[in-house]
Design a protein around this nucleic acid. Sequence first.
DNA 1: CTTGACCTTCAAGTTGCTTGAAGGTGTACG
DNA 2: CGTACACCTTCAAGCAACTTGAAGGTCAAG
Lengths: 136, 136
Amino acid sequence: MRIGELGTAVGVDPPTIRYYESVGVLPEAGRTESGYRNYSQTDVERLRFVSLARSLGVGLDDIRQILGLRDQGEAPCGYVRGVLDRQVDAVKERISQLEGLSAELEKLQRLARTLPDTDLDDPCVCHILQPIGAQH
Amino acid sequence: MRIGELGTAVGVDPPTIRYYESVGVLPEAGRTESGYRNYSQTDVERLRFVSLARSLGVGLDDIRQILGLRDQGEAPCGYVRGVLDRQVDAVKERISQLEGLSAELEKLQRLARTLPDTDLDDPCVCHILQPIGAQH
DNA sequence: CTTGACCTTCAAGTTGCTTGAAGGTGTACG
DNA sequence: CGTACACCTTCAAGCAACTTGAAGGTCAAG
């Protein structure tokens, strides 16, 4: 299986696959006689794992760790649990940050609808950020 | 006012201020005889605007646009409204993505608590991502 | 036999900074 | 007067996770 086929199968594009290989998340691929990368079903599964973990926001370092442990024949259960816990915390933290941000932005949007366009010296939608800034 | 004082006043550290200057978000600063950057109250206000806009997730390109329009004597009201609208949409989109992600991660966390640590061949917390991956 | 889709490598760009090296300036203290 | 010490300067590289581009090789179909 060549890189394009692998990419289509898993939903990851070829440059990204080559990138994963270059940073050691995927092992160096076997080659055909003409030098094309040649993949097997095992590679499909490994890339599927990487792709899923990435979509869950797991970083490449953690993924490399997990796969590395498994490659050495160890069950990386504890490590995975730790990654999961950290990830849940980080995502919840990020959500609450973004919710604050969203509230702030909608306040500005409402203000932007009530204020008219004006000259540079008058209160105006484009100066909207200044008074709010003063609160901080 | 030197760069450190400006930084303390606004809450932005000196390397970041120099970076903003280097990418054209802040104009080139005036200099003292000995070559130190020298700032005025106008610079404090401009940086305060930049800092607030950044904290609202507005990108440096948009900030440069807004300030550029203002520097040219135009009221960037329409542009600001557009940025605001795009920003609100992007943040809401991101929040709903993260909420889906959070639900997914908590499902995995629960599963990780019920599954025992096992050998590499058995269903195990470290293989937890595979079956969920199959759903996608 | 050539077109076009696919593959190769290496290098640089993206975003928004942060960090480090190597060195100049300014002031307070002994 | 000297010397710490905090502060300033520039330039360069590093971070995450890719993406894009250049320049060229391979292969099956028409």
